[in-house]
C-alpha cells in the first residue's frame, strides 16, 4: 500500500514533490525556498564529500542546500535516478530509488530511501537520506 491518505491529499503531496524535484535538480534558491519550510534540515548519508563513511552530516537551510547541490554538479557526472517510488502518509513522504553515477571519476551505485517530514503548511522541513552501497538492483518490481 502506498498511502494512508485520501487520494486528493496524496495528489497534493505529489505536486509538492514534483516542485521539489525541479528545485533539487536546478539548485535554484528561489525554487528551493518555495518548497522548504522554516528550519529545514537535510540529514545526508555521508560525513563529508570526501569521506564515504555513512556517519552523516546535516545541511541547514536553502543556502547550504544550494552549496551542496552545486558541489555535486561540479563533482558528480552521469547521475541517474531510477525506479523512483513515493509513499505518502500524513506529514511524511518516503521515497525509494536507486542512484548511480561518477563521483570525481569513481563510479557509485546505491539503493536509497529518503524520508521527508512536512510542517503544518506542507512545506518540507526535514529530508533524511539513507543510502546502501553497493546495491543489488532488482529492476522492474511491481508498483
Amino acid at each position: 500500500m502506498t498511502s494512508s491518505l485520501h487520494t486528493a491529499e496524496s495528489a497534493n503531496y505529489r505536486d509538492l514533490m514534483t516542485r521539489f524535484r525541479w528545485a533539487f535538480a536546478s539548485a535554484d534558491p528561489e525554487l528551493l525556498g518555495a518548497v522548504l519550510g522554516e528550519g529545514f534540515e537535510w540529514h545526508i548519508h555521508t560525513f563529508d564529500p570526501d569521506d564515504p563513511a555513512p556517519t552523516g552530516r546535516v545541511v541547514r537551510g536553502v543556502d547550504e542546500m544550494v552549496c551542496e547541490l552545486e558541489w555535486r554538479k561540479q563533482n558528480w557526472a552521469n547521475v541517474r535516478f531510477e525506479g523512483l517510488n513515493e509513499y505518502f502518509a500524513p506529514k511524511f513522504i518516503t521515497q525509494s530509488f536507486t542512484i548511480s553515477g561518477f563521483d570525481r571519476g569513481s563510479r557509485f551505485h546505491a539503493a536509497a530511501v529518503d524520508l521527508y517530514t512536512l510542517d503544518g503548511s506542507d512545506l518540507i522541513v526535514k529530508k533524511d537520506t539513507y543510502w546502501k552501497q553497493p546495491a543489488p538492483v532488482a529492476k522492474g518490481a511491481a508498483q
Binding site: 487520494t7 505529489r14 516542485r19 528545485a23
Partner: peptide, 22 residues
C-alpha cells in the same frame, strides 16, 4: 477516474514564472 480526477485537480495551474506553478 476518481483517482485521476483528484490528481489533476491538485495541480497548481498559473503563471509559469511563479515558482509555485506546476
Amino acid at each position: 477516474s476518481t483517482i485521476a480526477a483528484s490528481a489533476v485537480e491538485s495541480i497548481s495551474v498559473g503563471d509559469p514564472a511563479d515558482v509555485g506553478t506546476t
